[in-house]
Design a protein around this nucleic acid. Structure first.
Lengths: 167, 167
DNA sequence: CCCACTATTTATAATGG
DNA sequence: TCCATTATAAATAGTGG
C-alpha cells in the first residue's frame, strides 16, 4: 500500500506556527548539534542566544553559559587585583564584541596611510588584546575540567522570555 | 558500475580538521539557515557568535549585527534624553543577559516566602524591564524597514579572529 | 569565495508511549 | 519534556568549473 501522505516527514512552510512544542524542541536540539559539530570541526567557539518573545511555554537556560559567565566574573576579580589591567567588561559576549570593535578600528587606522599610530597607543591596544585573550584561554581551561565526557567547546545558549515578568 | 565510495556524501568524523574551507563554509551557511528557520517557525529571535581562534583564513562580520548594535546605541541616546531611564548597557547581548539575570533574581525573591519585596523595589524593576522591552521593540521595528525582501528576525552572527592582532 | 551536480548521510514530521 | 519508529525532506561531502 502507498504510505506517502500517511506518516514520515512532511514538508513544512517556513512561517510562524504555534504550539508545536515537540517540533520546536527537535529543531532546537538540531541547532545545538549543528553548532557543536561546526565547532568541533573548525576549532571555533560558538555561542548562541534565543530571545523568546511572548508568554510562551517556558524559558530555558543551559548550565553551560552560566558556568562560563560565573568563571568570567571570578577571573575578572583576580585579574584586576593581580595585573591591574582594564577588566571592566562584565559579560563574555560583550567583552568579545568590544574586542572585535577594537580590532576593526585598529585595522582601519593601519590601513589609513595619512595617519601614523604612536607607539604608546599601539602598546596599550596590544596589552588589552593580550589580557582578553589570556582570559578566554583561562576560561576555556577552567571549564574544560568541569564538563565531563567531551572536549570543551564553547557552545552556549540562553533563552529569554521577555514578556514573562512584566505581565 | 558501483558508484558507492566514489562520490556523494561521505561520513565525516566529528573532530578537528583543517583547511576544509569549502566544507566549513557550507556548514556555516547551514547553521545560519537552521537558525533562521527556527526563528521563523517559533517567533523567537536568534543570535549567534563564532569565536575564531588562530590566524585562520578570514574573519567575517555580517552587516546585520552591526546594524542592530548601531541602532541600539542610537536609541540608547534618545531614550536617556527623553525618558531619563537607565540605559547604561552598550551592547544588545549584554543588555539581555543582564535582563535575564534580573528576571532570575526576581523569581528567586518571589519564591522565598521569608522575604517580602517592598513596592518601591518592585516598581523600579518593572520599569527597567519595560524600558528594555520597548527598546527591543524599537530596534526590531526600525531594522525591519532596512532589511529588504524578508520578514525581520534577529539572526545575527559575529566571527572574531582572536590571534590576528597580537601576532 | 561562488555555483552546480550527485550520492549519501542526517534531520525531522508524524505518530504513539 | 523524554523516548522510539518510520518515511521523507534537507544537508552536505566530493568533485569540477
Amino acid at each position: 500500500m502507498d504510505k506517502r501522505g500517511e506518516k514520515g516527514r512532511q514538508k513544512i512552510e517556513m512561517k510562524l506556527i504555534e504550539y508545536r512544542t515537540v517540533a520546536f524542541s527537535k529543531r532546537k536540539n538540531g541547532l545545538g548539534k549543528k553548532a557543536k559539530e561546526y565547532s568541533n570541526l573548525t576549532g571555533e567557539d560558538v555561542g548562541f542566544i534565543l530571545f523568546k518573545q511572548a508568554g510562551k511555554q517556558h524559558s530555558y537556560v543551559s548550565p553551560c553559559i552560566e558556568k562560563v559567565i560565573d568563571k568570567f566574573h571570578e577571573l575578572k576579580k583576580n585579574d584586576s587585583l593581580q595585573n591591574h589591567t582594564d577588566m571592566s567588561k562584565t559579560n563574555v559576549f560583550e567583552a568579545f564584541e568590544d574586542l572585535r570593535k577594537e580590532v576593526q578600528a585598529f585595522k582601519e587606522k593601519c590601513l589609513d596611510s595619512k595617519m601614523s599610530i604612536d607607539k604608546h597607543t599601539l602598546e596599550n591596544r596590544l596589552k588589552k588584546f593580550e589580557a582578553y585573550k589570556s582570559r578566554l584561554d583561562k576560561i576555556k581551561k577552567e571549564i574544560k575540567g568541569d564538563v565531563p565526557g567531551e572536549q570543551f567547546k564553547f557552545i552556549s545558549e540562553v533563552a529569554l522570555d521577555l514578556e514573562e515578568m512584566s505581565s
